[in-house]
């Protein structure tokens, strides 16, 4: 019995570890994504009457689309396009600013929300 318990525990350990690892990776990705957003996006896109991106989106798309972090309609492809190609007044961002890995994390953060 004891042995059996141990074997169950033993077999569960890798699963728990894998789950923990996966969660850690996800959390790390989320926190990296949030950090990238804070460092590169929020100054223009935060929920503020003075944020240029928020002002522009409110005017052109309407209040429901103004605050990027509150949107649920953003796709990975759209975020990638805007970051690398810019739009209207928004400049593009280089790989030395937002690396491909950071861009993936940013997408993950914004899309998963």
């Amino acid at each position: 019995m004891r042995r059996s318990d141990n074997s169950i525990l033993a077999s569960a350990v890798p699963l728990v570890c894998a789950f923990t690892l996966a969660m850690n990776v996800l959390q790390a990705e989320e926190s990296t994504g949030k950090r990238v957003f804070s460092n590169w996006c929020s100054a223009c896109h935060m929920d503020s009457p003075f944020a240029p991106g928020t002002i522009q989106l409110k005017q052109t798309r309407g209040p429901d689309y103004a605050v990027i972090e509150q949107r649920t309609d953003l796709s990975a492809a759209l975020i990638r396009l805007r970051v690398r190609k810019g739009l209207a007044g928004m400049p593009s961002f280089r790989r030395t600013e937002i690396s491909n890995q950071d861009l993936d994390a940013l997408i993950d953060y914004l899309v998963r929300k």
């Binding site: 223009c44 240029p52 522009q56 005017q59 052109t60 209207a88 007044g89 928004m90």
Partner: peptide
């Protein structure tokens, strides 16, 4: 305190340059 508040001027005309 750094910000991008003034950057809003690029939006003044729309497709801002």
């Amino acid at each position: 305190i750094p910000s991008l508040n003034e950057f809003g001027l690029v939006n003044w005309m729309g497709a801002g340059g």
